[in-house]
Design a binder for these strands. Structure first.
Ligand SMILES: NC(=O)c1ccc[n+]([C@@H]2O[C@H](COP(=O)([O-])OP(=O)(O)OC[C@H]3O[C@@H](n4cnc5c(N)ncnc54)[C@H](O)[C@@H]3O)[C@@H](O)[C@H]2O)c1
Ligand SMILES: NC(=O)c1ccc[n+]([C@@H]2O[C@H](COP(=O)([O-])OP(=O)(O)OC[C@H]3O[C@@H](n4cnc5c(N)ncnc54)[C@H](O)[C@@H]3O)[C@@H](O)[C@H]2O)c1
Lengths: 208, 208
DNA sequence: ACCGACTTGTGAACGATCTCACAAGCACGA
DNA sequence: TCGTGCTTGTGAGATCGTTCACAAGTCGGT
């Protein structure tokens, strides 16, 4: 394999898309695929796909293209999906519950191993076969579970405090859904998904 | 005001962030703010903030900074948030319901005016004070409601068909949550939010 | 064994985005 | 009225991301 150096989010996100597409091809028993065939599926240039892939090694065969099975395997390795990732979910409101449900179905390499809330009606009860703990126990419980990634779906007002707790107890990555600009901890890779911002972008295009 | 020309998504999304921050300042009775003060809040350079804002006109006062109230008002106008936007939600599973709930609370300029599903247990029932219709009625009902934006939260297998229906009946923008690469209609501004891709990006950083 | 048709991987050109640095402008006090 | 101190708006330059174009390599047919 190859470069550890700064791979951009854009490239990484496209790798996920390629992987998804390649798996569909596997299901259709396609064994080989060229960069231009892939490029047609999404609206990308073939060169970009080749550049993206080439950053991690030489996966293709000149004159032939890429062997689908091999490329799937390589991408899984590159993205780190060949090992299980333990997740904690913090905030089991309507969004958090939906995410938890989604993850237990689509469980491939991501597995929920801890759940937290503050609502007395939820703490102590189960979501799936997992007991919901009180958030004040985050620091105590997370290290026992081996969770490295946290999904943060609490109200805005609680987001920063929960984030800091998570950072303190060894969480390495957070996917945040609260519409706030988190003051980030240096030890934590943080990514936010902001529904409202996306809607507002669409609103802009409608009124112009 | 100024340029209609191609504003990038990056800029637009930052404008939303600025707006959110400015509203907090309003609540704290701060009347003036400089680009460098804003820059501290998020981790951005002051110059970038000024460039972003300057694309739409001269909102600042040299030597003083920006008047918070004025800038809020200007950004609301720029983003098109000064008028109501009617939304349709398609697919009221766990995610769709969470989104619908979220939008009815946080209703500022976005209002749900139509809801669709195919599940017999849902069609005919209400979500909030809105009746859920069968998806086959999308083409008929959407034009009556004036919805211009659709939120698409159906399973992957149904996403493309629903999208095409929405495009056909005059929807101008779609926010898609299904993990698929939609074949886009030229008349529709489309944006996707992909939970899985975001998780996979985080996974990459953990294993490297 | 060779040719022709094809595809990859990649340097170089291009374009978009961000940062730097400073002239132009405003407020306030002397 | 003028000067000082501050901040905006903005060209010029740096950096990052994408596209172009082609040499290098592979395969199948003859
Ligand atoms: N629901 C959506 O569709 C949606 C969409 C985009 C963003 N969001 C954001 O996601 C977050 C959650 O949204 P929601 O709709 O699920 O809200 P919700 O009110 O349904 O759920 C929030 C949950 O967090 C819990 N909570 C509160 N403080 C907590 C703490 N300190 N520690 C742990 N849990 C705590 C609450 O008890 C509740 O169960 C919000 O920030 C919201 O803005 C939601
Ligand atoms: N739940 C999550 O946290 C989550 C996160 C990320 C992405 N997603 C994606 O969002 C989509 C919905 O997820 P979900 O968890 O709500 O699934 P879900 O199964 O709970 O809900 C899907 C809903 O869509 C309805 N539906 C099916 N076909 C339809 C059609 N043709 N027209 C209208 N409605 C139809 C179903 O009846 C159901 O109510 C999926 O594509 C999923 O991959 C979900």
């Amino acid at each position: 394999m190859a470069e550890p150096a700064g791979i951009s989010s854009l490239t990484l996100n496209r790798l996920s898309v390629y992987l998804r597409c390649l798996r569909q091809l596997q299901d259709s028993d396609v064994t080989h695929v060229s960069s231009s065939q892939l490029a047609q599926q999404f609206e990308l240039s073939a060169a970009l796909i080749r550049k993206d892939l080439a950053q991690f090694g030489e996966f293709g065969i000149r004159g032939t293209g890429y062997r689908v099975d091999d490329l799937v395997e390589s991408l899984i390795k590159v993205l780190g999906l060949d090992r299980a990732h333990n997740l904690a979910v913090v905030g089991l409101g309507s969004l958090g519950s939906a995410l938890a449900r989604y993850l237990s179905i689509n469980d491939k390499p991501f597995r929920i191993v801890a759940a937290f809330d503050v609502d007395g009606r939820k703490v102590g009860h189960k979501i799936g076969h997992l007991t919901i703990h009180h958030s004040r126990e985050i620091r105590e419980i997370i290290p026992q579970t081996g969770a490295q990634i946290a999904v943060l779906s609490v109200p805005e007002s609680a987001a920063q405090r929960c984030y800091d707790d998570l950072a303190d107890c060894g969480i390495k990555a957070v996917l945040n859904f609260a519409p706030v600009q988190l003051k980030q901890a240096p030890s934590v890779r943080t990514k936010s998904v902001d529904f409202q911002i996306n809607l507002e972008e669409l609103a802009y295009f409608l009124s112009s």
